[in-house]
């Protein structure tokens, strides 16, 4: 990311921070689920806000822009991570009860596109056509991704 040279006044900073505090949590949650890593999710969200700084005053609906940037950021991350993860151990994640642990591990283990479809369907409550628009693929592909994702999760959870 390039260093920002945008001049921001104090009042603009305060206004931007209101936006940041309003959308940081929902976007971080979404990015965590999409990437499978809270650390990476927070990076993606921060980058999205960084890109918003020079633009936000002129945007009518900045949350839509932010959401799009976060989803795109997560997708970009996955394209890069396929190379990077071969050299890195997976980060430790919090522990919940065993059922959630198992299921979350199965979700994280999914191929990226399947996990994106599953998260958008069952966390973001998006319809199939909305997911298709978000991911930039046909609705039939989304149905297939959700179907295969659930099948993989089920397969992993079964003894």
């Amino acid at each position: 990311m390039k260093a920002s040279v945008t001049v921001v006044t104090e009042s603009q900073q305060a206004s931007f921070d209101v936006l940041y505090r309003q959308y940081w949590a929902p976007l971080t949650r979404l990015a965590w689920l999409l990437t499978g890593s809270r650390e990476v999710g927070e990076d993606v969200v921060h980058d999205a806000f960084e890109k918003l700084v020079p633009l936000w005053a002129n945007l009518d609906v900045p949350e839509q822009y932010l959401r799009r940037m976060v989803v795109n950021g997560c997708r970009d991350h996955h394209r890069h991570r396929k190379v990077a993860t071969r050299h890195r151990p997976p980060p430790a994640e919090p522990v919940w009860n065993p059922e959630f642990d198992e299921t979350w591990a199965a979700v994280v283990a999914l191929p990226d596109r399947q996990r994106h479809a599953i998260v958008l369907r069952y966390y973001a409550d998006q319809r199939i056509d909305e997911i298709a628009e978000t991911l930039g693929c046909p609705t039939g592909t989304v149905k297939s991704l959700v179907h295969r994702g659930l099948a993989h999760i089920k397969e992993r959870l079964e003894p």
Partner: peptide
């Protein structure tokens, strides 16, 4: 599907409401 949705909400719920 219910289990997956509950898990995703649980994981996401550990992110605090404020940065």
């Amino acid at each position: 599907e219910v289990r997956v949705a509950a898990t995703l909400r649980t994981v996401a719920g550990t992110v605090p409401d404020e940065p």
